[in-house]
Design a protein around this nucleic acid. Structure first.
Length: 221
DNA sequence: ACCCAGGTGTTTC
DNA sequence: GAAACACATGGG
């Protein structure tokens, strides 16, 4: 079988069902980074409220977030949950980025593994947030994003992701990147489609009767 | 009144 | 190292 055939079939089935997803849902690279932090373990609808709160408080800018009093940040992003944690971490991330680079694109320039490590060293940026920022806020980092939906998918749908040992995130990410050419648009779209699938069908109460993957999906886990 | 959501960091066996 | 826990709001 051709390398990546199973994942390309997955992509085709999802794309046929849902079409292009236009991700990331944000206007600017900066907003993508902000949203990536705010959406951690949080429904996107709540992140939208938080982004709107930042905009309403005139804080949706590097300078605004870097210099705002924490209490103001907390109040603005409250709907996104974990608001005390996220306010501190978001401010720390923005200060780190714009303290060492003149803009986000400059901060994200360089070899993908090195920039990824740089992001991971920041408090509040773990593997998924780092990969989301790399993939969607920059244009030169075809790195695959693994989220809870992706992990759930590989547990139900027959994909030969290597078993342990090692970190589950890295194993899944490594599998996708080994099977697929490093294509920015493909990675962006496939991740977005997996989220669309998960948000529609793979929550606590699966709707497997209309799931585009019902043929071949284990329906368990 | 539950359960869950596009995780991360810390603490504990 | 895996596993358990804290972090918190809003919608089903």
């Amino acid at each position: 079988m051709l390398a990546g055939a199973k994942l390309l079939e997955l992509y085709n089935r999802l794309y046929s069902a849902y079409g292009p997803q236009h991700w990331w849902p944000a206007e600017t690279a900066f907003e993508i980074m902000v949203g990536a932090v705010l959406t951690q373990n949080t429904a996107w609808s709540n992140v939208e409220k938080a982004i709107a709160g930042l905009r309403a408080a005139d804080l949706l800018s590097p300078h605004g977030i870097a210099t705002a009093p924490l209490t103001s940040l907390e109040g603005a992003i409250r709907p996104s949950g974990y608001y005390r944690q996220k306010a501190r971490r978001l401010q720390g991330v923005v200060r780190a980025v714009y303290g060492s680079a003149s803009d986000l694109q400059e901060y994200l320039a360089g070899p993908t593994p090195e920039v990824r490590e740089k992001l991971l060293s920041l408090r509040g940026i773990g593997p998924e947030t780092a990969d989301s920022i790399l993939l969607y806020a920059a244009s030169a980092h075809p790195t695959f994003v693994v989220d809870a939906y992706t992990q759930r998918l590989v547990a139900r749908y027959p994909l030969p992701v290597p078993q342990g040992p090692g970190d589950a995130y890295d194993r899944t990410k490594g599998y996708f990147e080994a099977q697929l050419e490093p294509d920015l648009e493909l990675y962006r779209e496939l991740h977005a489609l997996i989220v669309r699938l998960g948000a529609t069908h793979c929550r606590a109460r699966p709707l497997c009767g209309t799931c585009p993957l019902r043929r071949g999906c284990a329906q368990k886990v």
